[in-house]
């Protein structure tokens, strides 16, 4: 795991008020199919055939060849088609937990060489360009792109990732005015309350998270774990 020192990040919804985040550890990679398979060996109740529908929608681990086995070519690819319940359980069994959205976003702010990626030429454009690329037929392995400032891989461009409090920012998907948020997270087409209206990549992530329910499984949604320092 990588240690992320205490520091602050700029939440999308908080105007220009940076929020403090205490020091924590975070996995360097998203959890892989291989790692998740090991977890299933000791927790068979989370296998595709056994999982309770309440905890994972139909389609849970649907990219696996069988109930307990992935395609070997995808051993080191991030595990996807995974619900929030399953991700949370996995982390707990490792003595870890899911990262909070604040923690995740703090790591995601980092560029390749500096803590504030938005100051790095081309960094925001690169993230956004990833959204303009067609999804690959099969997901590449973790840790093959480029590590960020903290030595953490694949925060952008590989898969979306669950966070512990993914549904705490209810953008409602309505990008102009969101009664659910009280403070109008996505007011007036851009966002009256957003500190950085040009951070389109962050808008994409917040929108994705707010479209989810804890039982959802998506072909491009995985997770990684975190731990207290």
């Amino acid at each position: 795991m990588a240690m992320i020192p205490e520091g602050s990040y700029l939440p999308l919804y908080a105007g220009n008020n940076r929020t403090n985040v205490a020091a924590f550890y975070i996995d360097k990679h998203p959890v892989t199919n291989g790692e998740f398979q090991k977890f299933l060996e000791s927790n068979p109740g989370w296998k595709r055939s056994a999982v309770k529908r309440l905890f994972a929608d139909e389609g849970y681990l649907k990219h696996w060849l069988s109930d307990g086995m992935y395609s070997t070519a995808e051993k080191n690819s991030p595990v996807v088609n995974i619900s929030w319940f399953a991700a949370k359980k996995y982390c707990e069994c490792q003595g870890k937990r899911l990262p909070t959205t604040a923690e995740w976003e703090r790591v995601a702010e980092a560029g390749w060489t500096v803590a504030d990626g938005s100051s790095e030429p081309g960094f925001n454009e690169w993230i956004l360009a990833m959204a303009s690329k067609p999804a690959p037929r099969s997901l590449p392995a973790v840790g093959t792109a480029k590590a960020n400032y903290y030595g953490v891989w694949d925060m952008h461009g590989l898969v979306w990732e669950w966070t512990l409090d993914f549904n705490s920012i209810m953008s409602t998907g309505e990008s102009r005015a969101a009664p659910g948020t009280g403070d109008g997270l996505f007011c007036a087409g851009g966002s009256a309350t957003s500190g950085d209206v040009s951070n389109y990549a962050a808008f994409l992530r917040y929108a994705l998270r707010s479209s989810l329910k804890a039982g959802h499984v998506l072909q491009n949604l995985g997770f990684r774990c975190a731990a207290d320092k």
Binding site: T172, G173, E174, R176, A177, L208, V217, L218, Q219
Partner: peptide
Amino acid sequence: QGGGAEASFVAPG
């Protein structure tokens, strides 16, 4: 509301 925006907001799949 939103011409259906909030009611139709939906994740992939």
